[in-house]
Design a protein around this nucleic acid. Sequence first.
RNA 1: GGGGUGGUAGCGAAGUUGGUCAUCGCGCUGGCCUGUCACGCCGGAGAUCGCGGGUUCAAGUCCCGUCCACCUCGCCA
Length: 636
Amino acid sequence: MAKFIDELKRTHRCGDLRITDVGNEVVLFGWVHTRRDHGGLIFIDLRDREGITQIVFDPERSLEAHRVAEQLRSEWCIGIRGTVRDRGMQRNRKGELVSAHNPKLDTGAIEVVVSEVVLFNRSEPPPFPLEDSLDTREEIRLTYRYLDLRRAPLQRTLRKRHVINQATRRYLSDQGCLELETPYMVKYTPGGARNFLVPSRIQRGKFFALAESPQLFKQLFMVAGFDRYFQIVKCFRDEDLRLDRQPEFTQIDIELSFVNQDDVFRLVEGLIFAIWKEALGVDLHEVYPTGRFPQMPFAESMRDYGNDKPDLRFAMKHTDLTDLVIEHEGGGVAPWAELARKFRDGSYRRDLPPEIVKVLVVPASANLSRAESDKLEEFVKGMGAKGLARAKIADDGSWTQAPLFKGLAAGLREAIHKATGAGPGDLLCFQFGKEAMVQTVMANLRIHLGKKLGLIPEVGHGNQWNFLWVVNPPLFEYDEERKGWVAAHHAFTRPHDEHIECIESDPGKVLCYRYDLVLNGFEIGGGSIRLHDPEVQKKVFRALGISDEEAQSKFGFLLQALRFGAPPHGGIALGMDRIAMLLSEAESLRDVIPFPKTQKGTDLMTDAPTPISPEQLSELAIRTLEIDKESPPRSP
RNA sequence: GGGGUGGUAGCGAAGUUGGUCAUCGCGCUGGCCUGUCACGCCGGAGAUCGCGGGUUCAAGUCCCGUCCACCUCGCCA
């Protein structure tokens, strides 16, 4: 072994060799991918991160090497010295002489005849096959993550992350941004995402929080005059996981001084173009010739798609019927009449409707069976809907299969046809009730149908890159429970100048310079132009019912900093993992993060998190309320 | 916390109304094979059917509970 490591240095990787290398002596290191033993000849596909090379053990070349090869098994780690040769010709079953080249491999024209082999390490049989396409349970893959990571697809996506990181650093550095670091251990601030807490041993009984983002610190960089900043940075949020949400994740974080919203957009568009070019070889100018992404007002997105991250790869817009229903006083439909009454008698306000009515048209061409349409109802019920009122439009325009709408007035029916453009054969799916519920249900129903009807792929992008800026959301949201206004995102977003005067009189009207970047229905970034004017900031706090003292105690250091000649500034954070996921057509964030957590936030490989000893707790001055049931130890 | 899907040999799956069915493919293992690349051929081993209760003469199958993984609502820029 020493000879191979000390004297025979690796000359090539397993993806390197071509027909032009024939005749050369080479040294390769790698893992046994597959082995085909013909008794005399033994073929082995040797694999490393760059590819696969077929190596041949011929007893006539080296009896000793051939003897070793008889023992070799999958995933054993070996090194070989040998000669590259053309695979030449072979006879097929009909006895014809055909090429022995393997077109499936980049190195398929050649093979290496082994004259010397060294066994670095044996391997137990792997618990699952290390194939490119694998349907092994994720539970097992995660337990043996280091083996899963040997597989080519994961090698490719992690490599893609590398390219994204390099492209990002190059581009942003060229744009005059400095890569600066911010602390992970920060002061706990309430609100927003839950923080992971880090107990301090030295300051007994006190806690740091793991940063949920570098937000405040990057603003302080602007105050400090660094002018343009970026960082590829880990962030931590103790919230429930989804396929696109992990408790620790990576952001491409950017902050710029002396900019408006459009300046931020241009910089980010350039970055995305650079990443797509380098990671995929895709020139987004073919889709966006001007180099700019389209923009959509937040209100339009909510109205037509029910959320702030519409997937515009297909149409199927919603139609909001609230106004029509009020106008027709419910049109003879009992729950709608009740709704209309509440608006009429003033229980509900038109400017912040607590309840709404929406409809989605499933085109006749979808040809949904009654059973399929019933399944849609089950789908929405799982999302909190009471049901899914449906109506099929008959040839004469009447509604069938629609018990709820028996008494529907023709006037409202015609108005709905006109508003939606629906016609005979189409299926109308209604949802009405609390606004948030209706929007969520209808947004998810639209995506569900988009996939079901084959308008968008189940996963991946289908070669469609649909970018969109969602802009101009409201600064405030009305909180039903608190019966007051709360910041829709955070209290430091700059409102539109023309709305500043109604911050206190009519908060619901105030739009702000906040923006989300959406790709194929995923939010891949979000940011804002910050509020740096102390006077406007005071108004915002007043509208939120936040006293000076409260503001000081929560955000004192930022407010203090803004008093020392803070420049106008704004920025954005891009979800690096999500970008990697979409670029790689991966099915979840877990496929682009080397060592991800499970849906319940655990690490199946290390079994973290674990209970800790009473001694450790005591040193940190912590007492736990319940001792968790000790989970049985895993044996990977 | 709610809704849903899944858990049968190392891996992937099949398993009718409860009754010789614990089956198939891959892998593993012993043997043979000098042109394979999903190599081939012959033989073999390997499973308390996630776990715990219950119903029954009899449970992989029915009932209750529970654990784990995944999707999702709530939550979360």
